[in-house]
Structures are given as structure tokens and as C-alpha cells.
Design a binder for these strands. Sequence first.
DNA 1: AGCGGAACAT
DNA 2: ATGTTCCGCT
Length: 698
Amino acid sequence: MKTPGDTGFAFPEWAYKPESSPGSRQIQLWHFILELLRKEEYHDVIAWQGDYGEFVIKDPDEVARLWGARKCKPQMNYDKLSRALRYYYNKRILHKTKGKRFTYKFNFNKLVLVNYPFIDMGSTGSSVPQSAPPVPTGAGTHFRFPPSTPSEVLSPNEDLRSPGGMFSSVTRRMARGSVSDCSDGTSVNSEIEEGNSGAPDERGERGVSGGGGPGGGGGYRSIIHPRLSHETLFRMYGGPGPGGASLLAPPLSPALSMTPTSHLPYTPSPTLSPMLGSHFSFNPEDMKRYLQAHTQSVYNYGLSPRAFLQYPNIVIPQPHRPAADKAALNAERGTAERAERAATAGGERGGERHHHPSLAHSAHHLPHHPHSAHPHPHSHPMHYPLHLGEEPPHMSPFKFKLQPPPLGRKQREGQSQSKPRQSSLSSGSGSMSSTSGLGSSLSFGSDLSSASGSGVISASSSTQSLSSAGLPKIKVEPISDIESEEEVEVTDISDEDPDERDEEYEHFSLRHSRASDHQQPNHRLANGTSASQHHEEDLDEDVFKAPAPPPPGLMPFFSSQHPHSSAQRGLPAVKSEPAEPGESNTSPSQTAATGAAQTKCIPLKLRFKRRWSEDQRMETSQEESDDKKVRPEEERERGKQSNGCMEMEEDGTGSGEGDSPPPLAYEGSLGTPLASHQRVSAELHRATAQLSLENKDC
DNA sequence: AGCGGAACAT
DNA sequence: ATGTTCCGCT
């Protein structure tokens, strides 16, 4: 069966294209870069090197060529490509490693969230290699880092296993889609494939083990997305099945598992990530680690709001807490296996720094089982989202900056002069749709929309469709606000987010703003002042600590009390409908009852605001610039011309998505009825599946 | 090399 | 929204 999704359900776009944003569905440069990085074949042109996420472009021209090929822009050169990379600075996706030529560093925090929201940062995974970015694999489980080997990333097989093994990597094989996107077939891919070739079949080939069942086996990659069996997924996420009430219960992100004790903590299957196949995937564990290590708090960073939106469940680690806590968190999910291996416990961070790829350092210990009970109040790692526990409603004076509508060049032009470049006249006027986003943002049901970006408000198409389609309810989002961020804190970046700021800020920031941080109206300041003087690091740290209000029972996420906050903002807290805000269900049970309940509530959209800091944290400090923002918005629509490039076609591998929709259930609402949940799940599944395909156009 | 503004393109 | 293309400044 197809799920509705197939048909037409609207699904969260993000699902399809995590990376790409709303508007563009094409492959994004960072994505492409990751693809290259993961492939050994390209190590001579680009490779991980240095700290986490750091990579060096050994052959700029070649990279540019490849990129140009992928985008059908033969004129591409490093100068242009680098310009594009520079745009990532503001987005925090990437940073330049100062002092090293052609060396940049990914800010996985951001990426992760975006792509794999479900990741819980709480846990750690295994060790990390060095620079390689994390790859999320499955949902729930863990993350791993792909060391330098690209291939691994691609192939999920490894995942199945455990991280440890994978590291070794060696495998390579495939490239297939690696690059993923679509078409690489064309140029890039082709090249890639050359290397190894065979792409085409990966599916069959690998075989995988998986076991699982999905239908056929499909291989490794497939394991996850395309064909995940529903069962599996469900299980993981808590399936709908008879027993599985999990869905209901805590709607968390799939990945996280539901805590409810019930059963299925995570599932047996190791990998499942929905997205894996498609683009590059990060391992969750790795990511976590990465994140933790670097950032620790999500809060700080701000993930992009969008990212969270979709996954309300994400658990974010609590802010600042010492390692210990973290560890605990991590543990939760932990698969025992990993844990064992890790054994080390110690040093996460420190270890990381090393550059050994090996996993040795990994360490995370796992203390307890995932679902076992945990004493810690707020620490439930996976399951519940972070803040739940604590989020006070606060609103603090953050700095959100709202910006007035930008004006742009267009205006400028108008005023000032004509454009130099083109003589034509476009009509300029008109269109600024962009602004819309800011203001509103309410997304209701569809996360996706928000996710997508522009969506903010949007209800636009996607949303609508949802609603219309029938999914309307899914929404789940209601809470999102709540979640929000609570923590968000600050970090330096504070400012930066111009773009999002609005949107997101509104939601969460405001709302929660919090008490905790009280400190700072402006993050930075605060730090400086009170906290410390150091630069970034301090900031981060501060950040971490800052918040912390923990009253245990307090956090009503959104539901309970939202009044103030939400009210203020005007957001409708309830976007969705069905839900349940109030109290709804909290029943549950188990363990964390309270917590859990709250948890459930978790908002869908969690969005955090601030972002990045992390990067900086590292060594370079570059951060200062946060403010900039990019955003020109103007959209003019002028004529468009077509280009003609098309080249390719790729293998088609992909396709498999149609069928099985893996359900990820994360819905978030607490009270939401099962049905809704299920739906959501289904949708998610679908989305996931599709993810793989993601791109393909050109 | 690298940065970033602008205008233009999708 | 994400690049691409130019280009001037460091």
C-alpha cells in the first residue's frame, strides 16, 4: 500500500529535501561537498582533514569542475564556488578555517539538525574521527562518524553493524548515487562512478544483511529508506501495532525512541534512518557526538529552526551540563553494543580532538538501558526532548532582531539607478513576497512548510495540501512553540539569524525565552559581562549554563501554560487542532510520567534560534561576524530562460521509494489521537523514502 | 586567497 | 532560498 502520501499527501517537504531548502530543490553545494568527501575517489581533490568537519580542497579547480558539472554550469570555477561557500558562512553551515588554504569546516550542528532532527544529541555515540562529519543513520539509534571514508557514509551497511566496524571502511563501492543528487549521473556522478562504478545496483548487490526484512532486502542502503519495512520502523518508533502504543504515547521522534518504556526502545535494527540513502547521511551517533562535543547544546547553536520544526521530538540535551550529564544522556539510547566498545568514557571531547580516526576514543558509556528508568529528571535522553523538563516559559529579552523588511537591491536600484548589469528593466516592483515569512510564521500544521523555509507561513502549498488532503491534522505542531527553544540561547551567534530570526524567534524564542538565561539580553553581552571573557568558548559555555531552570515539573511545554508566552506572541498556540493542548493526555505512564507527559507535548517545531557558535568554538574564532545575514530578497521575476543543460540522468537508482512508507512517528502532539499519529508516521515514512530520491533533476 | 556586495538566475 | 557571475578590496 501506498500511503496516502504517495498519492498526494503532502508531506513535509523537508523530508524530501532536507538540505535543500524550500526553494531550491536542487542539490546544494554543501551537500555536494559532503558527497565528495565521502568518496575515496575524490580524496585527492577534497578530503577531511583536521578537526571535526574540517576539510581541505586539494584541487580547487577540480572540485569546481565537478560542481559545475553537477549543476550544469561549465563555467564554474573555484572563485565562484568559493563564493557560494562563503554564503554558507552566514548560514553557519560552513566556516573557513583560517590560516589554511582551501580549508573549510562544516558546522554540523546546523546540518544535522536540519537533516536529521531526530538526532538526539544527548547521547553520544562513538567516537569520532576527526574531521569527518557525522552521519546520521538511523533514526534512532546512534550516530556514527564516518571517518574519512566516504563510502561508508554512503552505505549503510555499516550501520547495521555497528559503528565500530564501519570505520574501517574500506568499502567503498558505491558511489552510486552518491553524490547524490540526482543526476550526478551526469557529470559528477559519472565521475564518481568511474571510480567505482558500479553503482547501479547497489541495491541488489549489497545485500545486506539486513535483515530485516524489508522486502527484499535491499541492500544496505535501502534498508532504510526505501524499503523499510513498516514494521521495522514502527517498531523503532513505536509502532502502531498492537502493542505499540508507542506512538501514541510519546510522540517523539522516531529516532529517539519512545520512551515510554514500553517496548521497543529502539529497535533492533540498527539503521534505519530514513534518510540515509539519499544524500549523505550522517550517522546519528556521530553526529551526536559531534554535536555534543562541539556544541553541546543545541540550544546554543540554534539550530535552525526549521530543522526542528519538523521534529519536535528531538531531544536536546540540556544545556550545559557537565559531561556527566551528557554521558548519561547518551547512554540512554545506547545500544549496548556501542557502549561496550566505547568503554572509554572519558573523553569525549578530548578524544575527539585527536585525530585518530579510529574509534578508540569513543567513549560513551552507557549507563543504563535506554528505557530503563532513569532517575534523572531531565535527562531523559532520547525520548524527550530536552526542554521539556525544564523549559520555563520565559521570555526574555533576547535579542531577537527583527528586521524590517529588507529592501534590497531592487529598491536600491530603483532609487538609485538602474542596474548596471542588465539593462533590462525588470519590473521590479512587485514582488516581495519574501517578507511574508517573517512576520508570520505560524506554521501550523505543516512543519514542512516551515521547514521549508519560506514556508513560514505558509501555508501555502504544502500546507494546504496537507490540509486539504486530509492530513490536516497532523499538525502536530502546536507545540512547537513550546519547545522552542527554550534554550536557545544564545550563543553568540546571536544575532545572526537574521533571517530566521523572525520566524523562529517568534515562536520559540519569545516564548520561552526564558528565564534561564536571563542573563542576557543579548547573548553576547551577557557573556562578556558576567561570564567570561573568553571568546567564543566562553560564550558557549555560558550559554550552556545559563539557562537552566529546572524545575521539574514545570515545563509545560506548551501546553500548559503557555499562556503567557504564547499569548504574547500572538501565536496561536494551537495550531493544530486536534490536539490537545491542555492536558490532554498525559497519562501515561510510566516512567516518566510527568516528564513523559510533558514530553509528549513537545512541540513540533522546535526551533531554536541561535545557531552556531560552535563553529567557532573551535579554534578559530571567527565568529564575530554574525550579523550579517544574507538576504536579499528580491525577487523579481523576470523572464526566465531555460538553459539547456541537461545532461543526465543518473541511474536511477532511486526509485524505490514509493512503497513503503516508513513511518516515523514523531508527531508530537501529545494528545493527538492515534490516527493522527499514524498518519504522521506514514507520511514520514514516505518522506523518508523519497528522500532518497531527492534529487534528480537537473 | 579570501571576502563580500550586487545583480542576476533558478 | 541558493546559487552564479562579476568585481573591487584586502
